[in-house]
Amino acid sequence: MHTVWKGAISFGLVHVPVKMFSATEDKDISLRMIHKTCSTPLSYVRKCQTCETEVEWNDIVKGYEYENGRFVIFDKEELDKLSGEANKEIKILDFVDLTEIDPIYFQKTYYLAPNETGANAYNLLLESMRQSGKIGIAKVSIRAKSSLAAIRVIDNCIAMETIFYPDEVRSIQQVPGLPEEIKVNDKELTMAKMLIEQLAAPFDPSKYTDDYRETLMEAIKQKIAGEQVTVAPEQQKTNVIDLMSALQASLEAMKPKEEEPAATTKTTKSRAKKVKESG
């Protein structure tokens, strides 16, 4: 894997030299923008409207527009100093329980490996976090962006999850149309909970696939081979007109996941029938 950052984790006066690697990769299929008339790929040109010339990357700086058409300019070195990226430090501020962090805060995951001289300190931090059950909350600057981060253990690796600052997470109160008071039908609630029980399973990420990516790649292969693109017809939706019927139909469509729980499934359907009849 490609090293994306080098620095150190610090907690108290302890420094752990580490190298950082991206833990995830983007598997989206890249499609170019093409001129429909002649099938030529389109290019993006960085052009200065004043000089009427194309601008090279090394001639580009960043600026903040404080008034219409007026900017204050920063070069890369200034931004690095302001962000603290120059010190290359992941500074742990607190140790907390992972369950205290809502998933809405998580951004991107990185793996941290010990640098050449940091194996002992790395192992110490890893094992002490594993045995304490705590994760570290840290501050870090990567590519001129300051982030909070959660430092935790995955197997025998220290991982870092960048997380949003609280003021970057929008308030739920901004979401329109949310109910002021939750009111549900008791019978429908019982049926819904039974359906959840039927669908409950241990989390196994290997069973989930990107259906769109697979379909798109198959279409690409068909076009390369000069074939007509074929797409499987969409499954017809059941015409269920009320919520109780939809719940009942969902339960009836469920099949036993294994031979052993078959009796449990039969009992669940029986309970569903009684709930419907009592309504």
Rank of each mutant, 00 (worst) to 15 (best):
P176G: 08
T40P: 01
C51N: 14
I158M: 13
E252S: 04
E188W: 02
D80Y: 01
Y208W: 14
H35F: 03
L195P: 00
T37R: 12
E260R: 15
I92V: 14
Y66M: 12
V61F: 03
E127G: 08
A8F: 06
D94V: 03
Y64Q: 05
T264V: 14
M160S: 02
R130T: 07
A159E: 05
K27E: 15
Q173A: 15
E77P: 07
P179I: 05
E277L: 11
H2W: 05
S147Q: 09
A201E: 10
Y105A: 14
S39N: 13
L195V: 01
K62S: 10
D80I: 13
K47V: 04
E168A: 03
K91F: 12
R46A: 00
L93N: 01
A225Q: 07
I151S: 05
I220D: 15
T40C: 14
F71G: 08
F106C: 12
M129R: 02
L126P: 00
E252H: 06
E127K: 13
L124R: 10
L195M: 10
C51T: 12
M194T: 09
E56H: 05
L148R: 00
V231I: 04
A144V: 07
I73P: 01
F21E: 12
Q228I: 02
K255H: 08
K207L: 05
Q236L: 08
A150K: 02
A23Q: 02
K36C: 13
A246K: 09
S22D: 13
W57K: 09
M254T: 12
A225N: 15
Y66Q: 11
M160K: 08
T190M: 09
A201H: 12
I90Q: 02
A159W: 11
T50V: 12
R152H: 13
L189D: 03
Y122W: 07
K223W: 13
L195R: 01
M1H: 07
A253S: 11
R213M: 10
D59A: 00
A253T: 12
T265F: 04
A23E: 12
S171K: 08
S146M: 07
Q107L: 12
K187I: 11
P233M: 04
G136S: 14
M129N: 09
T267E: 06
A253I: 08
K237M: 10
N115Y: 15
M244G: 10
M194K: 01
P41N: 10
T109R: 04
T190L: 14
I182N: 00
E258H: 09
V4H: 08
E180W: 05
T40D: 13
T265H: 08
G133C: 15
D242Q: 10
G7H: 03
T268I: 14
T264W: 04
K221Y: 12
W5P: 00
E227Q: 06
S39G: 06
L216N: 06
P17S: 03
A262M: 11
K19H: 13
A249P: 00
A200N: 15
F74E: 02
F21I: 06
A192F: 10
Q248T: 06
A159H: 02
E168H: 07
D186W: 05
I154W: 04
T267D: 09
T238I: 09
V96M: 14
S171Y: 15
Y44W: 09
G84Q: 05
L247P: 00
D204P: 03
G7E: 01
K207Q: 04
L126I: 01
N185Q: 13
S278T: 03
E218I: 03
K139E: 00
